[in-house]
Design a protein around this nucleic acid. Structure first.
Lengths: 216, 216
DNA sequence: CTCGTAACTAACCAACTAGATAGTTAAAAG
DNA sequence: CTTTTAACTATCTAGTTGGTTAGTTACGAG
């Protein structure tokens, strides 16, 4: 397995800072994040942030780029599917859900970025982002053509889908706080329950009304 | 019309600070907001924040309470309503939507706070916040009892509803940026279109399946 | 072995920020 | 007019933060 803890390892230090930074930036936001807290979280001297990333801003950009590469590879396999629309929709939701669950901190950072006008998101990343939406639009278009999905605004529907999943994650830190203070409004649903609920709402809510009971 | 600018006016100063605070907190977050910027925005001396609100934290709570009071008073009459569940649900969505559109900054502040564990939100604000969820749960419970709404997880469904509306608002700054860069993925739907889409998805997606076509 | 350098540390600092405070003034009360 | 006080300002301060820097140590090349 090699040495568990060597005294010096540039790559390990870099990775530790990226990981700690992802967590702290997601929780506190850029301004709220303290470089000392990130360094402590990484088990590294604060000066290493400057040494490797040129400062707080540089680390933030690096965290964002690093986190987004996961997202991009997660979305890649989505568009080759040729299942019927409802099946594709279901698969799409599950794929998104699994990425969201896998990298919640990246989602939180992206939410903050979008609230701030997405100033630090570069165009390549942006392009990939739009692929999410294009997939939704494609599925909905197919479903409309084949009479399985009713006529809805694709952009709006996409926002509902992503928003439903995102909102669960962004409220999670608050739920933890509420629970620890004992004034929670009831137990929260699990992620799996939530995703199932989202999927069910979409499948039922988007289905075209049957004119007769002609479907086989 | 009275004097447009009197030299001293406690109420006007308070209101100006609340308004400026709402805007700056929404844009920068609690940590990112500078009391000096808020004071400047209100055209008032920085010390007035301490004088009237006891400090940054006090102003923040006041901004939140002020912003939520509109929402609460708007939602309050919904609970004695005796319309059928589906009608109540529809009204609830419209009421939330109109508050969201009217006070988007309050929504953004709440999103930021929840991502950070709601550490700046005091219990009074928290209590009021839960009223939203209680209303959803009440409507769904009624609907289930009367057989009009299928059995769904109330908490999860509430998150979907609020998340759908919230996500539209929090992505708005990003859409502005995308549009100005010319690489938008198509025109965004209007708020009204989005709300109509949300309402329709919920009404269809939550409806209990009719066992026969016995409904009158 | 020894030397150069990348990796790392501890201490420091300039800049900034929320809040305090002492003093000033408008305006209401009598 | 005088008094009182709420409303307001200019200035200061204690504490924090991101970043710098001089110095130290591990490590690989030759």
């Amino acid at each position: 397995m090699g040495p568990i803890r060597s005294t010096r390892d540039a790559e390990r230090t870099r990775a530790a800072l990226l990981l700690a930074g992802r967590s702290v930036f997601a929780e506190r936001g850029y301004e709220g994040a303290r470089t000392q807290e990130i360094a402590d979280g990484a088990g590294v001297n604060k000066a290493m942030i400057n040494y490797y990333f040129g400062g707080k801003q540089g680390l933030f950009s690096a965290v964002l780029l690093d986190g987004l590469s996961d997202a991009i590879s997660a979305v890649a396999p989505l568009r080759r599917d040729e299942d019927p629309p409802m099946q594709r929709l279901s698969t799409f939701i599950d794929t998104m859900a699994s990425f969201f669950r896998q990298s919640p901190d990246v989602v939180l950072i992206l939410v903050r970025e979008q609230m701030g006008g997405a100033r630090h998101i570069e165009s390549e990343v942006r392009r990939r982002f739009f692929d999410f939406f294009r997939t939704t639009r494609e599925i909905l278009g197919e479903g409309l053509a084949s009479g399985r999905i009713r006529d809805v605004d694709a952009h709006s529907t996409h926002l509902i889908l992503v928003g439903s999943l995102t909102y669960y994650l962004l409220t999670e830190p608050a739920r933890v706080t509420y629970a620890s203070h004992g004034d929670a409004p009831g137990a929260a649903p699990s992620w799996e329950t939530h995703v199932r609920n989202v999927r069910e709402l979409f499948l039922r809510g988007l289905a075209a009304e049957r004119l007769h009971k002609e479907e086989r």
